[in-house]
Design a protein around this nucleic acid. Structure first.
Lengths: 99, 99
DNA sequence: GCTCAATATTAGCTTTAACTAATATAGATT
DNA sequence: AATCTATATTAGTTAAAGCTAATATTGAGC
């Protein structure tokens, strides 16, 4: 591969992985693997304060790893990137599968 | 999953991903996907200075993502973690496959 | 229109990651 | 043993990520 392209592709991949490299975001994404969740539901699953969760959700939105849907004052999050589903399944196998 | 376990597993996964989340390390690992390489050969592939490459190689060794073999004054690096091979192949598909 | 519940944003601080520059080690060669 | 080549390490600086605390926004219900 041409060196300039290799560099820019590895920068993209770096960016992608960094957006994923956080325990709170990983727990959120893992929870969303099971389906749509409101912020309040995520707060039950993930041991962080509301503002911190909200900051991480903002990052996941900007990365377009998740998408949202509003219903009244409740906002539902869901996975929106097929790459994330693939990576999360792989990580689940590495770190969470019981065997 | 029990909340304490979920937290500690997501911390492990975070650590694992962070060790991977760097363009230089990604280029090194990508190069090693094709087989063993000496540091000098890696320097030809990866656009960084020798001390910087060496720092990243040290990190990859500590993470046990790679292993080494010495032959005279030359040190050869190779991939040593099957999880890395799986993730790198996935990332290659996401960011480097031409289609 | 006021109040409450759900969610988001901003500022300030601290920690961690990565770079540069200089130097060190270790094996090979003369 | 002196020198060269290959590789590693260390110290110092800068930049980026994540937290806390405070506050803002938005929709619902009275």
């Amino acid at each position: 591969m041409d060196p300039t392209q290799m560099l820019s592709r590895s920068e993209e991949a770096e960016q992608f992985l960094k957006q994923l490299s956080n325990k709170t975001r990983l727990m959120v994404l893992c929870s969303l693997l099971e389906g749509e969740r409101s912020v309040t539901e995520l707060l039950d699953d993930v041991p962080v304060t509301q503002p911190v969760l909200s900051q991480h959700l903002a990052l996941l939105r900007e990365a377009e790893f998740v998408a949202t849907r509003r219903s009244g004052q409740t906002i539902y999050y869901r996975l929106a990137d097929n790459r994330i589903i693939q990576i999360m399944n792989l990580l689940y196998g590495f770190f969470c599968a019981d065997n």
